[in-house]
Write a protein that binds this DNA or RNA. Structure first.
Length: 643
RNA sequence: GGACCGGUAGCUCAGCUGGAUAGAGCAGCUGCCUUCUAAGCAGCAGGCCAUUGGUUCGAAUCCAAUCCGGUUCACCA
């Protein structure tokens, strides 16, 4: 049990005994003591004055005295300032923690709790390579999975690949039209990039073909449209010519976009893509073969990137195999009367009672929509694993979708409903706004990683410390540092906040960064090497009550908080909590390490003032290195022995 | 328009289940490498915590209203 929890339960006992009052653990507010006061943890006593019927100071003193006499192995002293009871935790407690935990590689982790969680993340489209936004998703998903494992959950990492649909057909069609049989092997281009290039080619071609149609509409020439579409375009064009709309930039922009969209659908190339999609759905062997081939190229490319990123999955789902699911659920829903059918044969659910709209689940022609697929996939996943919780790592633009998804599952009384959790994260944006593949403003993931690794190489060369490393070792280190910087950068911010990335300013390697923390770790390892100690099992030579110097104590205290931090990270579903803590810990170690008085290290380790201090500090830095390594592991970041 | 998310130092962000004088990093300015790794350390400077009102011993934190920014409300996925 953590110190904070121990103090809490001691306080509950004390209050019961002193004031015959039952309070729950969560009623005890405990803070880290401000540095200007004596003690490590502070109990806020104001809330207790209600039943103590004493002044805050008096209440604090009574409580402090009780804790001191009844929990001497925990509390060694206290002071009261206004309504704050500052507790000094006994050295024996801290040294006890240090001695039992310093060499425990799983320190702070929770034992298995018997619960199963699925984390679905990554979920790429197979028509283009990964970009910066995907990286945030991948790192978040991976990290959350690790955090859940460390909290005792059994975790299944799942990836639902979006491998079919009109976007894939676009790449396929453009390849057929323009590639002259080019393959990754023939061009030397990574598979996902090659396919992505043809997706871009499709879009440029589409734009070219759409332009004359748009121009005609703007000149009131509607020859490209017929029937209801023609009416729609006519209306939009008329609206656009109204002076009040012309003045409203936002409105006119929206209308123009709608016209553009309609025009794009009228292009020959778009029509061809749609035909291709129909052929795909009908199982046309030629189209299916091309599809399988091109997806194969993309998977090869993804495989390389995933491997480099250190990301993996336990279970793959493919939309081509799941997109027809969900119809059974619709049947069940109709039988239960939860869903209803309209005259055109389409199937809907009415969510107006929940403050939402009606939602379509099956088109009039019996085909399913996105929501239907997701309902079916939710059932499939549940049937596969019977997990307690199912986490979807998906950008916040889909908040509404997941709200509706869960609601529908509840109404259908699906067992999967209870565990649905949308881990919603903000988009990564550029200074000018969102990344748009159509406009070519995406930051490519592979490029980004290369750049980070190059920067790492440059920094390392400048430091000139590792001349004895082989080329291989150096390359591995550059990857470790570059990726560490990258992952930390994307994980240190609260997931739900959108983040702005400026490609002009490179990601920092100083301060609140991955390399800073990796550096602290390498430093500790360097000291341990320097100390010559290989067997750490005989370091308990100091007594439990030996005094601890301020920074020694501060460092132990901080290490001890890891368990609580780990729980918080799980509760909040936020790796940023781990990132912040790891940085804080590395910083604390650096201060400890560097403190000098008159040119002499206060906390010299190798040349400590006594054998006892040397051993204590060796344990302390071993513990610190271990905690840092554990934190970074949770973020998917490796830490080096040297750098 | 409805729903959801955000607004804290020049910039990027912590802190938000109410607690002491609001913290980091970057950028700027000072110092510190014959001593365990300077990707570091110590320090200076930088704030009407969007605004207004409320709740209370106490509000950046909770509530209400307002303002600003974003997302979303498809027979696209």
């Amino acid at each position: 049990m953590s110190v904070v929890q121990t103090i809490r339960s001691a306080a509950v006992t004390a209050i019961k005994s002193l004031y015959s009052q039952e309070v729950s653990l969560s009623d005890i507010a405990i803070n880290v003591t401000k540095p200007e006061f004596e003690g490590e943890y502070t109990i806020v006593v104001f809330p207790f004055t209600k039943f103590s019927r004493q002044k805050p100071e008096e209440t604090g003193n009574n409580l402090g005295n009780y804790l001191l006499t009844h929990f001497p192995e925990l509390i060694s002293g206290f002071n009261v300032v206004k309504g704050f009871l500052n507790l000094s935790i006994s050295n024996a407690y801290w040294t006890g923690f240090l001695q039992t935990q310093f060499n425990n590689p799983h320190s702070g982790r929770k034992p298995a709790n018997g619960k199963k969680v699925m984390v679905e993340y990554s979920s790429p489209n197979t028509n283009k390579p990964l970009h910066l936004g995907h990286l945030r998703n991948n790192f978040l998903g991976y990290s959350i999975a690790e955090i859940l494992k460390a909290n005792g959950y059994e975790v299944i990492k799942a990836n639902l690949v979006n491998d079919r649909g009109i976007h894939i057909c676009k790449s396929m069609l453009a390849w057929q039209l323009f590639a002259h049989g080019d393959t990754p092997a023939s061009t030397g281009i990574k598979g996902d990039h090659l396919v992505g290039d043809y997706y871009v080619k499709f879009e440029t071609q589409l734009k070219e073909q759409a332009e004359p149609i748009i121009a005609r509409v703007l000149e009131n020439d509607l020859r490209d449209f017929e029937g209801t579409e023609r009416e729609k375009v006519e209306k939009l064009a008329a609206l656009l010519h109204k002076p009040e709309i012309q003045q409203d930039k936002e409105k006119s922009g929206k209308i123009t976009d709608e016209i553009k969209e309609l025009a794009r659908n009228k292009t020959e190339i778009m029509q061809q893509a749609k035909i291709m999609l129909q052929q795909w759905e009908a199982g046309n062997p030629e189209v299916r073969t091309l599809w399988a081939t091109m997806n194969g190229w993309v998977y090869e490319g993804f495989e390389t990137t995933y491997k480099r990123l250190g990301i993996d999955f336990d279970k793959m789902y493919y939309e081509s195999q799941t997109y027809l699911l969900g119809k059974d659920l619709v049947e069940d829903g109709l039988r239960k009367g939860v869903l209803f059918r309209k005259e055109d044969n389409s199937v809907w659910i009415d969510l107006t009672a929940d403050g939402l709209d009606q939602k379509l689940l099956l088109r009039g022609d019996g085909t399913s929509v996105y929501m239907t697929q997701d309902l079916g996939t939710a059932r499939l996943k549940y049937d596969d694993y019977h997990m307690d919780q199912s986490i979807y790592v998906v950008a916040d633009e889909q908040n509404y979708h997941f709200k509706v998804l869960q609601l529908i599952l509840q109404k259908l009384e699906e067992p999967a409903a209870a565990g649905i959790y949308h881990l919603s994260y903000g988009m990564v944006e550029l200074p000018h706004g969102r990344m748009k593949s159509r406009e070519g403003t995406v930051v490519d993931a592979d490029d980004m990683i290369d750049e980070m690794v190059n920067t790492a190489a440059q920094h390392t060369k400048e430091s000139g410390k590792l001349r004895d490393f082989s080329e291989d070792e150096l390359q591995r280190l550059y990857e470790m540092i570059g990726l560490g910087a990258m992952k930390f950068f994307l994980l240190r911010v609260d997931p739900k906040k959108k983040m702005i990335f400026n490609p002009e300013e490179s990601i920092d390697f100083h301060g609140f960064t991955g390399p800073f923390i990796q550096y602290a770790h390498a430093r500790i390892k360097s000291i341990l090497r320097e100390s010559g100690v290989t067997d750490t099992s005989h370091l308990d030579t100091y007594r439990h009550n030996d005094s601890l110097l301020p920074m020694e104590k501060a460092l132990i205290v901080l290490n001890e908080q890891f368990g609580e931090v780990l729980q918080d990270a799980e509760k909040e579903m936020s790796p940023s909590i781990i990132a912040n803590y790891a940085f804080h810990l590395a910083q604390q170690f650096n201060s400890f390490y560097a403190e000098k008085v008159n040119g002499v290290y206060t906390y010299s380790i190798v040349n400590a003032e006594s054998e006892e201090k040397r051993n204590l500090r060796l344990q302390l830095i071993t513990l610190t290195a271990n905690t840092i390594a554990q934190c970074m592991k949770l973020l998917g970041i490796d830490v080096p022995e040297r750098m």
